[in-house]
């Protein structure tokens, strides 16, 4: 990488005009991207090939650790013939619905509570102890309670996803509000902003990068909440798929469900990044930005 930077900064002496230097720099950065993509694909292929070879030659026991071809076959079967609990897309839809609902509710609640407590010192002092206590409970345990209270349907999974998301987002929003620059707030006040205008035009934007950072992590948490909830007891969903496969010692099935979850998580992560880039276009580009 350093050599590529050196290339961009010190073009060969033959390049004299700015346009030539620009073209050379563009070439260099395209070449770098190509190298990165090629290396990523190469590593993936190597790992899968090694795994498959190991499984076929008996070094890895496919009964416990599955094999790429077995996983692919399992996914194919699910896609074409459906799962034991109904069509695959239905399982995915149910899990995504729980995840997205839990994520939205948890994130909205976290943001609102974070901003309210961040803006109000008295409330923050009163509630901080309770929040610490609630936060220290291993949240997965709450899953059992939710299932007892809310039943095997969607509500218990959404509730678990909500608590998984809420605390992360809350903590970040709260911190973001507290870090808001005092001089900037005073400036807005003197320019004539009301307390509501300050919250909307100073506090929320300055907490925004904290909040967005937490949204990245917490979508994964929401997915964990939904899947664990399904694990503990459900009628549908990818989590149920995993626990069914586990019950019949179907390692391929467990891995296949994992692959599906990973793809879902990556797609949503990409969407969040897109939204983030639109929301914080004012931010200076990091030196090593892609």
């Amino acid at each position: 990488m350093s050599s590529i930077i050196a290339q961009t900064l010190d073009p060969p002496a033959t390049l004299t005009s700015p346009s030539e230097i620009e073209i050379a720099a563009r070439h260099a950065s395209r070449r770098r991207r190509q190298i990165v993509v090629a290396a990523r694909i190469g590593i993936l292929v190597a790992v899968l090939a090694g795994w498959e070879l190991g499984a076929r030659s008996g070094v890895i026991d496919p009964f416990f650790f599955a094999s790429p071809s077995g996983i692919a076959e399992q996914i194919w079967t699910w896609v074409t013939e459906g799962t034991s609990q109904g069509p695959l897309w239905e399982q995915i839809l149910v899990t995504m619905e729980e995840t997205v609902l839990g994520f939205l509710i948890g994130a909205a609640g976290g943001v609102v509570c974070g901003i309210v407590l961040g803006r109000n010192r008295l409330l923050a002092d009163i509630f901080s102890t309770y929040i610490k206590v609630a936060n220290s409970i291993p949240r997965v345990v709450l899953g059992s309670i939710f299932i007892i209270a809310l039943g095997l349907g969607m509500a218990s999974k959404v509730a678990l996803a909500v608590v998984m998301v809420f605390f992360v987002v809350f903590a970040n929003a709260f911190q973001g509000v507290r870090e808001a620059d005092r001089a900037m707030i005073a400036n807005a006040q003197i320019l004539g902003a009301s307390s509501y205008q300050i919250t909307r035009t100073v506090i929320i934007p300055s907490a925004m990068s904290w909040i967005l950072a937490s949204l990245h992590v917490s979508f994964g948490f929401a997915l964990v909440g939904a899947v664990v909830g399904e694990f503990l007891g459900a009628k549908k969903g990818v989590g149920l798929l995993i626990s069914t496969a586990q019950g019949s010692f179907n390692a391929d099935g467990v891995f296949a469900a994992m692959v599906i979850l990973a793809v879902l998580a990556l797609v949503v992560e990409g969407l969040i990044t897109l939204v983030e880039n639109r929301l914080v276009k004012w931010r200076p580009v990091p030196f090593d930005g892609h």
Partner: peptide, 26 residues
């Protein structure tokens, strides 16, 4: 009253135009 601060107190998420227009909009 108008106040010019020692430290940078502009709103970094607003363009120059929106920064200058902030007071009247408020």
């Amino acid at each position: 009253i108008g106040f010019v601060f020692q430290a940078d107190a502009l709103f970094p998420w607003r363009s120059v135009l929106d920064n200058v227009a902030a007071g009247p909009v408020f």
